[in-house]
Amino acid sequence: MNILVLLAGVADVRYPLHEIRIDAAGLIEEGGQSRRQLGPFDEGALELALKLRDAREDCRIEVLVLGGSNNDNLLRSVAAFKPDRLRLLDLQPCRPWDARLSAAQIAGLIGAEGTPDLLLIGREFGDLDEGSLPVLLAARLGLPLFALAQYAEWQGEQVRLLRERGIRQQWHSVAGPLLATVTNDRRNKLRHPLMKNVMLAKKMTFDSVTASAAADSDVRLADLAPAREVQRGGQCRLLDGDVPSQARALAGYLRGEEEENAA
């Protein structure tokens, strides 16, 4: 089985955001010290692929890592898991805010190189996607979509994918080429790479591949600004006293008794 994993990376939320602005050409320019790393959905997609390869010798993993800031570190972090092939994905033109264009570019590349048996991608593709790109990519490639997979396993010769919907859990047996989006779950938490592989990855060089499109984006980037602060009640009233009295006050608040008394 040939598995293709698409990884985008996200800015590390534990650190202040690096400098990002719109340049004179209307493109996103990232400066300063970018800490782009695999996001939780990227990690889930990669781990599911690794689990499937662990169980079968004829399972092959190819990974494409989206180009952008902090490329090199991101590629090395993925290389430490020893995918069978790893390349940098260069979108030309690069308009990551336009999922339609990006999906068309990536679909063009995959279509030209050959559709994999299983395409795994995080439910959101990077910091500028909210889930549109995987759906559009599946449509462009004409692949069925299994959304929000949480786990994968072999059952005989077939891969089975699991997701939960409400109070139901659903297993799908993959019968042909399919795109699955992966969400975070304890069963697909990314393993730690072996230290020797981390060291080997530091010395590697990587190929890149360009995914282009004839047409440009229909959407112009107009503005990039800090997020608006959401106005909330705030002015927190801290409950004092010992734990039992704090618990009584808290229970009253949760039951709405405090508001009734005030009324």
Partner: peptide, 8 residues
């Protein structure tokens, strides 16, 4: 960017 920037 995780809700830290808004993009127009």
């Amino acid at each position: 960017w995780g809700g830290r920037l808004r993009l127009g």
